[in-house]
Design a protein around this nucleic acid. Structure first.
Lengths: 109, 109
DNA sequence: TTATCATATGAACGATTGCTCATATGTTCA
DNA sequence: TGAACATATGAGCAATCGTTCATATGATAA
């Protein structure tokens, strides 16, 4: 007969956040889970940059960068301001830096 | 003529980590970027659990959980110990908790 | 207005991902 | 040894993802 975890499950499931929140958490980290987006966030670490500067820096097309900035913005990880034709992007808040910093710590042990 | 960012790019690129590290960072967060894996890590937040208990908790097949645990283990996010037929998984270190906590803070503002 | 620069966006395509299903491996106990 | 349990794994498939390409939108200056 398979073994029993009723008590454990009762306790653990009472501590689990609701599904919607866990889904949102996954969706947030999914945004961090791409090298291009990580690079963009790293580039914005110190100062705002315009789209074409980011594209130059990463040696990628303007379109690809623009698509990814949209993803980052939808997740509230970057914000932007317009100045004439140019649009400058910056990190939206300090969470971005601390999440990346924690990840960095993990992989560099 | 397109506008110029030479100075900015020179500075920013000097501050960028090497590509391999940025790739590793992306790969790490990719692991966090799935609801099933987030749930598993949350379940292990307080105590170790065996595979079938996790499967019961999440109402998913043993196979699906086992596949995901392999991913988590490859990323050094969980560790395991055997006790007879049963294998117990636990969080590998405190980084898991702090990364999730930072993400949690971000989405709950 | 027209030309040019900066950025955004939609469709399409190849690559990756997460699950299922079937089966293999490993452990215990009779 | 054989049966039952716990877990792992490989193949296959649908769904998602990230890029490219073509084109649209928006702003500025002549």
């Amino acid at each position: 007969m398979p073994h029993n975890h009723e008590e454990l499950l009762k306790h653990v499931s009472s501590e689990m956040p609701v599904d919607e929140l866990l889904q949102d958490l996954g969706d947030l980290f999914k945004v961090f889970g791409d090298t291009t987006r990580i690079k963009i966030m790293y580039a914005l670490h110190e100062d705002e940059m315009c789209v074409c500067a980011i594209a130059d820096l990463l040696k990628m097309t303007q379109s690809a960068i623009s698509h990814q900035l949209k993803v980052l913005k939808a997740a509230n990880l970057v914000a932007s301001r317009r100045e004439g034709k140019t649009i400058y992007y910056r990190l939206a808040d300090e969470h971005v830096k601390s999440i990346i910093a924690q990840g960095y710590e993990h992989i560099t042990e």
